[in-house]
């Protein structure tokens, strides 16, 4: 495995490819649902205002 990784790295150093080792980075929850709802409603309101103009 290590040898394979070295091969990938040195094959084309300009293309960034250190050992292909994906790692999940799930988006974290930073807003409570009601905050998202308020932001969505405000955004909708803004859009409506723009459309009317």
């Amino acid at each position: 495995m290590q040898d394979q990784q070295e091969d990938v790295r040195t094959a084309d150093p300009l293309r960034f490819a250190p050992p292909g080792a994906p790692l999940a980075m799930p988006p974290q929850t930073l807003e409570r649902p009601r905050v998202r709802l308020i932001a969505w409603l405000l955004d909708l309101g803004q859009r409506q205002t723009l459309i009317r103009r």
Partner: peptide, 12 residues
């Protein structure tokens, strides 16, 4: 990776 995935905040 496990804790710092940043979401896009709602709204503009």
């Amino acid at each position: 990776a496990a804790s710092c995935g940043l979401p896009e905040l709602s709204g503009r």
